[in-house]
Protein backbone atom coordinates (compact mmCIF):
# COMPACT_ATOMS: atom_id res chain seq x y z
CA UNK A 1 0.00 0.00 0.00
CA UNK A 2 1.41 3.36 -0.84
CA UNK A 3 1.56 6.35 1.45
CA UNK A 4 -1.66 8.00 0.29
CA UNK A 5 -3.62 4.78 0.45
CA UNK A 6 -2.52 4.31 4.01
CA UNK A 7 -3.33 7.81 5.08
CA UNK A 8 -6.71 7.66 3.43
CA UNK A 9 -7.59 4.32 4.81
CA UNK A 10 -6.76 5.53 8.27
CA UNK A 11 -8.60 8.76 7.79
CA UNK A 12 -11.78 7.14 6.49
CA UNK A 13 -11.76 4.63 9.33
CA UNK A 14 -11.50 7.42 11.86
CA UNK A 15 -14.25 9.28 10.09
CA UNK A 16 -16.45 6.18 9.92
CA UNK A 17 -16.06 5.67 13.61
CA UNK A 18 -16.95 9.19 14.44
CA UNK A 19 -19.80 9.78 12.04
CA UNK A 20 -22.68 8.06 10.36
CA UNK A 21 -22.13 6.42 7.01
CA UNK A 22 -24.30 8.99 5.30
CA UNK A 23 -22.33 11.80 6.87
CA UNK A 24 -19.15 10.19 5.66
CA UNK A 25 -20.45 9.96 2.11
CA UNK A 26 -21.54 13.56 2.18
CA UNK A 27 -18.13 14.61 3.36
CA UNK A 28 -16.42 12.54 0.72
CA UNK A 29 -18.75 13.91 -1.93
CA UNK A 30 -17.88 17.45 -0.96
CA UNK A 31 -14.21 16.62 -1.11
CA UNK A 32 -14.61 15.04 -4.51
CA UNK A 33 -16.38 18.04 -5.92
CA UNK A 34 -13.86 20.39 -4.37
CA UNK A 35 -11.02 18.19 -5.46
CA UNK A 36 -12.26 18.09 -8.98
CA UNK A 37 -12.87 21.79 -9.48
CA UNK A 38 -10.37 23.82 -7.48
CA UNK A 39 -7.08 22.32 -8.54
CA UNK A 40 -7.98 22.08 -12.21
CA UNK A 41 -6.70 25.57 -12.81
CA UNK A 42 -3.10 25.10 -11.68
CA UNK A 43 -2.92 21.71 -13.34
CA UNK A 44 -4.02 23.17 -16.63
CA UNK A 45 -1.43 25.89 -16.15
CA UNK A 46 1.21 23.30 -15.38
CA UNK A 47 0.50 21.53 -18.63
CA UNK A 48 0.73 24.84 -20.46
CA UNK A 49 3.97 25.81 -18.78
CA UNK A 50 5.54 22.50 -19.65
CA UNK A 51 4.75 22.83 -23.33
CA UNK A 52 5.81 26.46 -23.29
CA UNK A 53 9.44 25.62 -22.62
CA UNK A 54 9.65 23.99 -26.01
CA UNK A 55 8.42 26.23 -28.79
CA UNK A 56 6.60 24.74 -31.73
CA UNK A 57 9.14 25.11 -34.52
CA UNK A 58 8.23 26.27 -37.98
CA UNK A 59 10.14 28.23 -40.56
CA UNK A 60 13.63 28.30 -42.01
CA UNK A 61 16.50 29.21 -39.64
CA UNK A 62 18.62 30.28 -42.61
CA UNK A 63 16.05 32.89 -43.56
CA UNK A 64 16.01 36.35 -42.02
CA UNK A 65 12.26 36.20 -41.45
CA UNK A 66 12.56 33.16 -39.16
CA UNK A 67 10.62 34.01 -35.99
CA UNK A 68 13.54 33.93 -33.55
CA UNK A 69 15.44 36.61 -35.46
CA UNK A 70 13.02 39.43 -34.58
CA UNK A 71 15.70 41.41 -32.74
CA UNK A 72 18.83 40.15 -34.44
CA UNK A 73 21.50 42.28 -36.02
CA UNK A 74 24.25 40.37 -37.79
CA UNK A 75 25.12 37.32 -39.88
CA UNK A 76 23.04 34.21 -39.33
CA UNK A 77 25.18 31.36 -37.98
CA UNK A 78 22.83 28.96 -39.74
CA UNK A 79 24.33 30.18 -43.04
CA UNK A 80 27.89 30.05 -41.71
CA UNK A 81 28.34 26.39 -40.78
CA UNK A 82 26.56 26.60 -37.45
CA UNK A 83 22.87 26.77 -36.60
CA UNK A 84 20.41 29.03 -34.82
CA UNK A 85 21.60 27.36 -31.58
CA UNK A 86 25.25 26.60 -32.23
CA UNK A 87 28.42 28.31 -33.37
CA UNK A 88 30.26 27.20 -36.50
CA UNK A 89 33.34 25.04 -35.87
CA UNK A 90 36.38 27.11 -35.00
CA UNK A 91 34.40 29.87 -33.30
CA UNK A 92 33.51 30.39 -29.69
CA UNK A 93 30.17 31.51 -28.26
CA UNK A 94 30.17 34.78 -26.38
CA UNK A 95 28.64 34.55 -22.92
CA UNK A 96 27.73 38.25 -23.06
CA UNK A 97 24.75 38.75 -25.31
CA UNK A 98 21.71 40.66 -26.50
CA UNK A 99 18.43 39.49 -25.05
CA UNK A 100 15.03 40.12 -26.58
CA UNK A 101 11.59 38.61 -26.88
CA UNK A 102 10.07 37.26 -30.10
CA UNK A 103 6.58 36.12 -30.90
CA UNK A 104 6.36 32.60 -32.27
CA UNK A 105 3.47 32.52 -34.75
CA UNK A 106 3.48 28.71 -34.74
CA UNK A 107 2.26 28.48 -31.13
CA UNK A 108 1.22 32.05 -30.40
CA UNK A 109 3.64 32.51 -27.50
CA UNK A 110 6.41 34.99 -26.77
CA UNK A 111 9.84 33.63 -25.95
CA UNK A 112 13.00 35.13 -24.50
CA UNK A 113 15.73 34.90 -27.11
CA UNK A 114 19.45 35.22 -26.44
CA UNK A 115 21.47 36.40 -29.44
CA UNK A 116 24.85 35.01 -28.51
CA UNK A 117 27.55 36.00 -30.96
CA UNK A 118 30.10 33.54 -32.26
CA UNK A 119 33.61 34.91 -32.19
CA UNK A 120 37.10 34.03 -33.29
CA UNK A 121 36.89 34.13 -37.09
CA UNK A 122 36.44 37.15 -39.32
CA UNK A 123 32.90 38.12 -40.34
CA UNK A 124 31.00 35.27 -41.92
CA UNK A 125 29.49 37.57 -44.51
CA UNK A 126 26.50 35.36 -45.35
CA UNK A 127 22.85 36.06 -44.57
CA UNK A 128 23.16 39.52 -43.08
CA UNK A 129 19.96 40.04 -41.12
CA UNK A 130 18.99 43.25 -39.38
CA UNK A 131 15.61 43.24 -37.74
CA UNK A 132 15.17 45.54 -34.83
CA UNK A 133 11.71 44.56 -33.78
CA UNK A 134 10.96 43.28 -30.33
CA UNK A 135 12.23 44.79 -27.15
CA UNK A 136 15.84 44.91 -26.23
CA UNK A 137 17.03 45.86 -22.80
CA UNK A 138 17.85 49.46 -22.15
CA UNK A 139 21.60 49.61 -21.92
CA UNK A 140 23.71 52.21 -20.26
CA UNK A 141 24.51 54.79 -22.91
CA UNK A 142 28.09 55.09 -21.68
CA UNK A 143 28.62 51.35 -21.89
CA UNK A 144 26.88 50.53 -25.15
CA UNK A 145 29.70 51.57 -27.43
CA UNK A 146 32.50 49.82 -25.66
CA UNK A 147 30.55 46.71 -24.84
CA UNK A 148 31.86 44.39 -27.49
CA UNK A 149 29.54 41.37 -27.62
CA UNK A 150 32.59 39.20 -28.23
CA UNK A 151 33.80 40.04 -24.76
CA UNK A 152 34.49 37.11 -22.52
CA UNK A 153 35.73 35.02 -25.42
CA UNK A 154 39.40 34.63 -26.27
CA UNK A 155 38.99 36.53 -29.53
CA UNK A 156 36.99 39.71 -30.01
CA UNK A 157 36.48 39.10 -33.74
CA UNK A 158 32.77 38.83 -34.61
CA UNK A 159 31.73 35.99 -36.93
CA UNK A 160 27.95 35.44 -36.73
CA UNK A 161 24.95 35.42 -34.38
CA UNK A 162 22.84 32.65 -32.91
CA UNK A 163 19.28 33.00 -31.61
CA UNK A 164 18.73 30.68 -28.67
CA UNK A 165 15.42 30.26 -26.85
CA UNK A 166 16.21 30.74 -23.15
CA UNK A 167 12.74 31.02 -21.69
CA UNK A 168 9.13 31.98 -22.00
CA UNK A 169 8.25 35.65 -21.81
CA UNK A 170 6.24 36.51 -18.73
CA UNK A 171 3.18 38.40 -19.86
CA UNK A 172 1.67 40.93 -17.50
Amino acid sequence: MNFFDKVFEQRSRQLAQRSSRRGLLKGLGAMLVGGASIPLLPVARAAGAEGAGRPVEEGDPSSCDYWRYCAIDGFLCDCCGGSANTCPPGTEMSPVTWIGTCHNPADGRNYVISYNDCCGKSSCGACLCMRDEGDRPVYRPDKTNDLNWCLGTSSVTYHCSTAIVVGVAFDD
Binding site: P95, V96, I99, V112, D135, P137, L147, L151, G152, V168
Partner: peptide, 21 residues
Protein backbone atom coordinates in the same frame (compact mmCIF):
# COMPACT_ATOMS: atom_id res chain seq x y z
CA UNK B 1 12.05 36.77 -16.76
CA UNK B 2 12.95 40.21 -15.39
CA UNK B 3 16.52 39.07 -14.82
CA UNK B 4 16.74 37.54 -18.29
CA UNK B 5 15.40 40.60 -20.04
CA UNK B 6 17.25 43.26 -18.08
CA UNK B 7 20.42 41.76 -16.70
CA UNK B 8 21.27 38.38 -18.18
CA UNK B 9 22.66 39.76 -21.43
CA UNK B 10 25.64 41.14 -19.51
CA UNK B 11 25.62 39.08 -16.34
CA UNK B 12 25.09 35.71 -18.11
CA UNK B 13 22.52 33.11 -17.05
CA UNK B 14 24.48 31.91 -13.99
CA UNK B 15 25.77 35.30 -12.83
CA UNK B 16 29.34 34.38 -13.72
CA UNK B 17 29.78 37.47 -15.89
CA UNK B 18 32.54 37.84 -18.48
CA UNK B 19 35.06 40.46 -19.48
CA UNK B 20 34.28 43.74 -17.73
CA UNK B 21 31.14 42.29 -16.13
Amino acid sequence: FDYQMNCQGCHTPDGAGAGSV
